[in-house]
Design a protein around this nucleic acid. Structure first.
Length: 827
RNA sequence: GCCCGGGUGGCGGAACUGGUAGACGCAAGGGACUUAAAAUCCCUCGGGUGUUUCACCUGUGCGGGUUCGAUUCCCGCCCCGGGCACCA
């Protein structure tokens, strides 16, 4: 065999060659084939910010391995790619660099598409879409109109989260610690009109169907559960004394209703004015409300506000015991949750307890810990459940049964009802910006809000046809605004809000199934074949926002008749961040690694290999420049091994029966099949490519060592071993494997190659190592025939010289034999 | 405060269902080849002790427990990361 120790694999020429071939032949185009198993693998599509970063490299490498692997397993794989192309950075770049958001975006897309192609990713580029394309967002406008018809889209005036620096409204989930999720500037409340999607109509389903998502990380489901925040309880009316008004409260603790000693209203509560109008309390209450509202705006999100309140001069009646309790306005009561009014039970709620202490209000205990009698004075609220006391007919019941009994009682008497509330609120989608999908409605003074007729869609963003077109926010573009009313023909004004960009990403995965469909948003035949996404891959930072919106949209599209599925993503893989020197890569920290430089220096295969090898996908990946050298070394090692063993590929290919193989051949054959099993299991169970790669490395190390030591395993075994290596590595380093495959005389490319088949007989060891313990400590090892029986094994262990030293003639109390593993002698 | 993750060599990480802790890779040290370098190959590599081709002790955040045997299971803590945070 020749010496190839100094030859190097020419990644540059090889990668260019195969990429050209893929671009010309488009082997990764997918077409629905009814009756054939499909597999839809999708990575979260990128925002075209300019260039790809290491997070993308990692995300797409993982997705590509899965796509190629599933193809080798015989699936009809769809693996599309596109662009989440609307958004504020385009507008900011436009202002800064004087280019139009559209041309900035499309330039970036062109550049980044090249970068992705240079990574050798097996996308079906025929399905590529960009959400800023009118051919995409026109269908979004259609969906919007359908939602409007069904009351799933509506307009209202509310207090919204306003980001002054982005000059737009944010949804609640887009406010992180009181700041904008995008620009990190503080968010302020502001009252204005806006469009909403009625996600709360699906709250129940979104919550309960989480249980069907067996392929999702528990962590993500917990986050969604908390975000939806369903609570069951009692909604109950308290009559206001001396006024024909009721205050409705919501509580999850109806069992404490006999402990109510006062009532708290949110400062925004609509009844306050009426309660105090014309009374001596009016002045004080109104100024309190005003001060509190201002304070609330100023308050930073992490600080705990001191509890404050003011008496309204009014009392209301607890319908359960007829007691009159004073009504307060309190700064800690939220208008946004429940009814904006809470019954205060200081003995069993810590906030009420603190409030009562401050204003010396009575505290009445009505819940006793199950195993304890009444104690002394409470130092803090007792919030656990227990046994009811001082609760009229309910005294003596335990909390759980009392809750139901009290709800029943309220329902029977007509002053209360069982109710479920949610923390989740409707999704505010209005953005007061330019670079987004226009909301397709018209405001007419006579007719009100009129939908744009479907035949007039798309409502196209103005100014995109020229690099000099205006990209001012739409409310500043008079030419766009002025129109006529589709209903009465009179002069009217277009809606100037654009949609939140999360709307586009809420349904793009479905559009990939039919990107050219021209008569409706989705082609039912195609979506029924391809959806749901079998494997979705992306960063955990989208655990709530994007993934919840997409689940909501899927249900809306289902109810509109466009889809037949409930859940969009069957399996979800949330990959960790790429970090360097212990911190997330960022320009400000100066620790960014540019994928371009790496691909230039090492080639795409090496970069892919290292990003898969350095950590399992769900964990953060510490970028290590020297580790990349290691990945490169490994590929070169395989390259040299293949060169050295080239002759094996020209001889006969049929494997002899293992009994006919020489010792080295049998050992290599065994290791080959053990590796097939290890790699297959690693991919199938949890996509742990790091252990898959290390298994292949072990096999390569063994083969190389055998060759170097002149052991000459049977040639067909060497050939099968190397072919296996190439097949196992192909999903991770496709250019390299294709080249080696061709070099070793295969006339068909690997695109249709079949994943190696594991042979348990071939993998079976005929001699195994058994450890021998004395009192649980390893004292010796035995090489024995794999089929040895327990008695013989025990005898061999006791007879072992090292073991005899420890037993020293003593009679063992007990001997434990574990098949194929160990013997433990207990003295 | 509450709810999830996670803590293993100098580093990234392995370890099936309770059964050899540290696979694989990186770094480091030593050596071979070479005029030299690169490339490549070989050896050592958790800590400690000793009579040092070998043997023993110790070791998976800390303290207990269950077990013949615990990185793995149970109880109680500590630290790190993430999410939520007056949600009645």
């Amino acid at each position: 065999m020749e010496n190839h120790s100094s030859e190097k694999y020419d990644f540059k020429a090889v990668e260019a060659k195969w990429q050209q071939q893929w671009a010309a032949a488009r082997p990764y185009r997918a077409a629905a084939e009814p009756g054939r198993r499909k597999y839809y693998v999708l990575e979260m599509f990128p925002y075209p910010s300019g260039r790809i970063h290491m997070g993308h490299v990692r995300n797409y490498s993982i997705g590509d391995v899965i796509a190629r692997y599933k193809r080798m397993r015989g699936f009809n794989v769809m693996h599309p790619m596109g662009w989440d192309a609307f958004g504020l950075p385009a507008e900011n770049a436009a202002l800064k660099q004087g280019v139009h958001p559209a041309s900035w975006t499309y330039d970036n897309i062109a550049y980044m598409r090249n970068q992705l192609q240079a990574m050798g990713l097996s996308y079906d580029w025929d399905r590529e879409l960009a959400t800023c394309d009118p051919d995409y967002y026109r269908w979004e406008q259609v969906i919007f109109l359908r939602m409007l018809e069904r009351g799933l889209a509506y307009r209202k005036e509310t207090t919204v989260n306003w980001c002054e620096s982005c000059r737009t409204v944010l949804a609640r989930e887009q406010v992180i610690d009181g700041s904008c999720w995008r620009c990190d500037q503080p968010v302020v409340p502001r009252t204005m009109h806006g469009w909403f999607f009625k996600i709360t109509a699906y709250a129940d389903e979104l919550l309960s169907d989480l249980d069907t998502l067996t392929g999702w990380p528990e962590k993500v489901m917990t986050m969604q559960r908390n975000w939806i925040g369903r609570s069951n309880g009692l909604s109950c009316d308290f009559q206001v004394e001396g006024l024909d008004r009721k205050i409705t409260i919501f509580t999850t603790r109806p069992d404490t209703v006999f402990g109510v000693t006062f009532m708290s209203l949110a400062p925004e509560h609509p009844l306050i004015d009426e309660l105090v109008a014309g009374t001596e309390y009016e002045q004080e209450v109104k100024s309190f409300v005003q001060r509190t509202l201002i304070e609330k705006q100023r308050k930073s999100y992490d600080e705990d506000l001191e509890k404050n309140g003011v008496f309204t001069g009014r009392y209301c009646i607890n319908p359960f015991n007829g007691e009159r309790v004073p009504v307060f306005v309190a700064n800690f009561v939220l208008m946004e949750y429940g009814t904006g009014a809470v019954m205060a039970v200081p003995a069993h709620d810590q906030r009420d307890f603190e409030f009562a202490a401050k204003y010396t209000l009575p505290v009445r205990e009505v819940i006793r810990p199950a195993n304890r009698d009444a104690g002394g004075e409470l130092a803090q609220a007792y919030v656990e459940s227990g046994v009811l006391d001082n609760s009229g007919p309910f005294s003596g019941m335990d909390s759980e049964s009392a809750k139901q009994a009290i709800i029943d009682h309220a329902e029977h008497n007509g002053f209360g009802r069982s109710e479920t509330t949610y923390r989740l609120r409707d999704w505010g989608i209005s953005r007061q910006r330019y670079w987004g999908a226009p909301i397709p409605v018209i405001h007419c003074d006579r007719c009100g809000i009129v939908p744009v007729p479907e035949s007039d869609l798309p409502v196209v963003l103005p100014g995109t046809d020229s690099p000099y077109g205006s990209h001012a926010p739409l409310h500043l573009q008079e030419e766009f605004i002025a129109t006529s009313c589709p209903a009465c023909g009179g002069p009217a004004r277009r809606e100037t809000d654009t949609m939140d960009t999360f709307v586009e990403s809420s349904w793009y995965f479905a559009r990939y199934a039919c990107p050219d469909h021209r008569t409706s948003p989705l082609d039912l035949e195609q979506t029924t074949y391809w959806l749901p996404v079998d494997q979705y891959i992306g960063g955990v930072e989208h655990a709530i926002l994007h993934l919840l919106y997409a689940r909501f949209f899927t249900r809306v599209l289902r109810d509109l008749g466009y889809l037949k599925i409930n859940e969009p993503f069957l399996n979800l893989l949330t990959q960790g961040m790429v970090i360097k020197d212990g911190a997330k890569m960022s320009k400000s920290k100066g620790n960014v690694v540019d994928p371009n430089d790496l691909i230039e220096r090492y080639g795409a295969d090496t970069v892919r290999l290292f990003s898969l090898f350095a950590a399992p996908p769900e964990r953060d990946l510490e970028w290590n420049a020297q580790g990349v050298d290691g990945a490169s070394r490994f590929l070169n090692k395989v390259f040299r091994l293949v060169l050295t063993c080239r002759a094996c590929f020209s001889g006969p290919g049929n494997l002899p029966d293992p009994a006919e193989m020489n010792d080295a051949g049998r050992a290599l054959h065994r290791k080959t099949h053990q590796t097939i099993k290890k790699v297959t299991d690693s991919i199938e169970s949890n996509f742990h490519f790091n252990t898959a790669i290390s298994a292949v490395m072990e096999l390569v190390n063994l083969a190389a060592a055998m060759i170097a030591e002149g052991k000459e395993p049977d040639r067909p075994v060497v050939r099968a071993c190397l072919e296996t290596v190439l097949l196992l590595l192909y999903p991770m380093v496709p250019h390299f494997c294709e080249e080696m495959w061709e070099m070793t005389g295969h006339d068909r490319t690997m695109e249709r190659a079949i994943w190696p088949v594991f042979d348990p007989d071939g993998a079976r060891e005929d001699e195994i190592t058994i450890i021998v313990q004395v009192n649980g400590k390893v004292r010796s090892r035995l090489n024995v025939a794999a089929g040895i029986d327990d008695a013989a094994l025990e005898a061999r262990a006791l007879d072992d010289g090292k073991i005899r030293k420890f037993t020293a003639g003593r009679q063992p109390k007990k001997i434990i034999v574990v098949q194929r593993k160990l013997v433990n002698i207990v003295l």
